[in-house]
Design a protein around this nucleic acid. Structure first.
Lengths: 236, 236
DNA sequence: ACCTGAACACCGTTCAAGT
DNA sequence: ACCTGAACACCGTTCAAGT
C-alpha cells in the first residue's frame, strides 16, 4: 500500500515504505521460516525489484536490526521479583525465551558492538540485568561482567538449539544417521554408559536450572572478590 | 601429489585424496581465513574441478567435520589437576582455547547430534569433563547436564568473539560507527553510567573467571539436589 | 574408477539509466 | 525522488557425458 505523496514533495511516488518492508519480512518469516528471508524473496513478496529495497535499508544486516528492534519493543517483560538475584534470573529467562522464539535474532546479535545498534526497548533488558546486579551489591564493572557471562550462556544455548530444530525441520536426516557408535569405546567409559540415553538427555531443557546455578555462582564470586574472602575460584 | 595407482585396481587414476583435500583446506584457512574456505576455492587450490571434490567428501559439512576431527586429534591436553572441580575448569578452558583458535569449528558444532559425528580424540574431551563431574560426586545424569551447560557458555563466548574479530578483520566499520549514543538515555541510568567505558569493558576476557563461577554454581546445585538440601535455586 | 564442464538454483549488492 | 533491469561476483550441488 503506497503512501500518498505528501504535499510539497516532488518526483516519482514511492511504492513501499520501511514499515511495509518490516511487516512483509515478518510475515515471510512466520510463513516460511527465517532461513527463507532473503532480499530477493522479500522484494518479490512486496512486488518490487530487489534493488528497490536498498532505498529503504542499507543492507541485509540493517534489515535484521530493524526487525530485531521492532520485536524487542513488543516484548512483554515478566513481573519483576523484589530480590535482585531473582530479578536477574527472570529477566534473563525472558530474554532467552524471546531469542528462542526468534532464533534469527541470536545470529544478528553475535556481531561486534551490537549493543550500540539497539534501540531503547532492547537496551532496557540489559539495563534491568545490570541494575539488579548492582542492587545485589555488585560494582558497576562486576554487573557488566555478570550480564556478559549470562549473555554468552544464553546465546550459546539458543544457537545450538536453533540449529538442532533446523535439522529436524529440513529433510536432513543427519541426526538419525548419527549412530553414536563412536561413544561405545572402552576408552570412553562414562560416555559409553550414557550412549543409549544421550539423545534423550540432550533433548532435556536445562536452561533455567543452569541459569540459576550460574547466577548464584557469579554473585558469590563477585561478593567474595569485594570482601577479599578466599574462595576456590580466587585461588588462581 | 596423486598417489600411485595400487596394483590390482583399474580405471582412471585419482588426482587427489582425502588427506590432500584436508591439508589443502587447512592451508587455505591459515592463509586467507576460514570465511574463504569454499568448495570452489578449495578445488582451485588443488587444481581440480569443484565437482571432483564430491568424490571424496559428501558435502561441505562433511568436509568441516573431517577438518574438525583431525584438529581435535592434534590438540594437546593440559596437565590434569587432581581435584575434580579444577579438572573440569582446566579441560573446559582447553576446549575453549581450541575453539577460539579455530572459530569455524564452533559453527559446525552447533548442529544437532554433532556428538555422534565426532571421532574418539574429540569425544575424549567430553569424557574428561563428564568423568570429573562424576568424580566430584555427581550422578551420570547430573554430569551430562554440567557438560551441556558449560558447552553452551563456551560456544556462545566463542561465537560472539569470532564474529567480533571478523568485523575488525574486514573493511567493515560498523563497530566504529556505533556511537553508543542510545545508551545515553535517562531511562537507562546504569548503561549511561558505563556508556563511555562499555567498549573497553566488553573487550576484557572474562571467560575463565566466569567459567569458575559457573562450575562452582553447577557443582553446588548438584550437591544440593542430591542431599535434598534447600538452596535458593531449589525453591522453584 | 575417476574426472569433468555445463547447468541449476540460488545469494547480496552495485550502478547507470529510466520515469 | 524514486524505481528498475542488467550485471557482477559469487555460492553449494547435481548429473550426464567423457577418459
Amino acid at each position: 500500500m503506497p503512501p500518498a505523496t505528501p504535499p510539497g514533495r516532488t518526483g516519482r511516488p514511492p511504492v513501499t515504505s520501511r514499515a511495509a518492508i518490516v511487516s512483509a519480512a515478518r510475515s515471510l518469516i512466520d510463513r516460511d521460516g527465517w532461513e527463507q528471508l532473503t532480499i530477493r524473496k522479500l522484494a518479490a513478496e512486496l512486488n518490487i525489484g530487489p534493488t528497490t529495497l536498498y532505498h529503504y535499508v542499507k543492507n541485509k544486516q540493517d534489515l535484521l536490526l530493524l526487525l530485531l528492534n521492532e520485536y524487542a519493543a513488543q516484548m512483554a517483560l515478566p513481573d519483576l521479583p523484589e530480590a535482585p538475584r531473582d530479578r536477574i534470573v527472570e529477566v534473563t529467562q525472558a530474554l532467552h525465551d524471546m531469542l528462542a522464539a526468534w532464533p534469527w535474532a541470536a545470529e544478528v546479535l553475535t556481531v561486534d558492538g551490537f549493543l550500540g545498534l539497539l534501540d531503547e526497548p532492547a537496551l532496557s533488558i540489559v539495563e534491568l540485568i545490570v541494575d539488579a546486579a548492582v542492587d545485589h551489591g555488585c560494582t558497576l564493572d562486576q554487573a557488566v561482567d555478570v550480564f556478559r557471562s549470562l549473555w554468552y550462556y544464553t546465546i550459546g544455548e539458543v544457537l545450538v538449539r536453533a540449529h538442532s530444530s533446523r535439522g529436524h525441520a529440513d529433510g536432513e536426516h543427519l541426526v538419525q544417521r548419527a549412530t553414536f557408535h563412536n561413544l561405545e569405546s572402552p576408552r570412553l567409559p562414562r560416555l559409553s554408559a550414557v550412549a543409549s540415553r544421550w539423545r534423550a538427555l540432550a533433548a532435556r531443557d536445562i536452561y533455567r536450572k543452569s541459569l540459576e546455578a550460574f547466577v548464584d555462582g557469579l554473585l558469590a564470586q563477585a561478593t567474595a572478590a569485594r570482601t577479599g574472602q578466599r574462595t576456590r575460584s580466587a585461588k588462581r
